[in-house]
């Protein structure tokens, strides 16, 4: 199976509460860039779907990672190559020249060049939190979509059984490839995603795999090609533009109560929620 995984980097999501807004713009100075967590889960899923878990070094298929952005994104792409992806594509552009719709249209052009069987993408990137590119891409390609996947099982690499995490439960779909699947966090649980080559009983370690030092060195030699946005789409106009940002209104400072009795008293007389 040939799988394409779009990647983005984001300001350290575990310190998102430290971002500032300066002159109406979000400022992430001081926060380290990290791969978007949901995209990392998509890479891990792609690796799981193209291997037999008893030998994770041999790729039984191909995993291509693609990013849109400036040169610095090569680091993010190399990181994915080090964990096992085969090659990388970077479409040279900047974040402020993009909206979700343009990202989807660029990815469509990349998909048409590469003809993968599957696009695996994080359900959302955790800066914009828009949750849209996978769905837009599926429509532009005329492919089926399965969003918010919490588990995937391959049926002979022709179809996927996808459990979607929806409000109040799970919705199970079978999609025949090619398709677009967006992943949620439980996809990287021990039983989350499994290829046709891996024993049904196999349990992966929780989370995403890390690259060994040797693999990081080897990844430097893996192919990474740069493409120009203008070569992929003729119309780079944006459908949505962003204006000023602001911090959320601060919450009124809370208090610590000393006892359960005091808590109940406050909830009754002060908050009036009981």
């Amino acid at each position: 199976m040939k799988i394409l995984v779009p990647l983005k980097r984001v300001a350290d999501p575990d310190n998102a509460n430290k971002i500032k807004v300066i002159a109406g713009k979000v400022d992430t100075t001081g926060l380290e860039f990290k791969p978007n967590p949901f995209d990392e889960y998509a890479v891990e899923t792609a690796l799981r779907l193209t291997e037999n878990a008893t030998n994770t070094k041999a790729r039984l298929g191909e995993v291509i990672v693609v990013a849109l952005g400036p040169k610095e994104l090569d680091t993010t792409l190399r990181g994915a190559l080090a964990t096992g992806a085969d090659r990388a594509i970077r479409v040279d552009t900047t974040d402020d020249a993009l909206d979700g719709d343009l990202v989807a249209r660029v990815l469509k052009a990349v998909v048409e060049k590469e003809a993968p069987d599957l696009v695996l993408i994080g359900k959302q990137q955790v800066e914009g939190d828009s949750n849209q590119v996978g769905q837009l891409l599926a429509e532009y390609l005329g492919w089926p979509q399965a969003t918010f996947a919490g588990s995937i099982k391959s049926e002979a690499d022709k179809a996927l059984l996808v459990s979607r995490e929806v409000d109040g439960g799970t919705l199970n779909l079978k999609v025949t490839l090619p398709a677009v699947v967006s992943v949620d966090l439980r996809i990287v649980s021990p039983q989350g995603a499994k290829s046709m080559h891996t024993a049904a009983t196999h349990a992966y370690p929780e989370g995403v795999r890390f690259a060994a030092l040797m693999a990081i060195m080897a990844a430097k030699k893996k192919p990474l090609v740069e493409m120009k946005l203008a070569e992929l789409v003729g119309d780079a106009s944006l459908k949505v533009t962003y204006g000023t940002a602001e911090l959320p209104p601060p919450r009124k400072a809370g208090i610590k109560v000393k006892s359960v009795a005091e808590l109940v008293e406050k909830l009754k007389t002060e908050a009036k929620v009981l």
Binding site: A11, P13, L238, K239, V240, Y242, T244, A245, L247, P248
Partner: peptide, 19 residues
């Protein structure tokens, strides 16, 4: 003008739809 939470609710952005 639409206002929306971003960065896991740690910032709000405003956006306009151009279509």
């Amino acid at each position: 003008v639409y206002r929306r939470p971003m960065f896991a609710g740690n910032a709000y952005g405003t956006c306009e739809v151009q279509t």
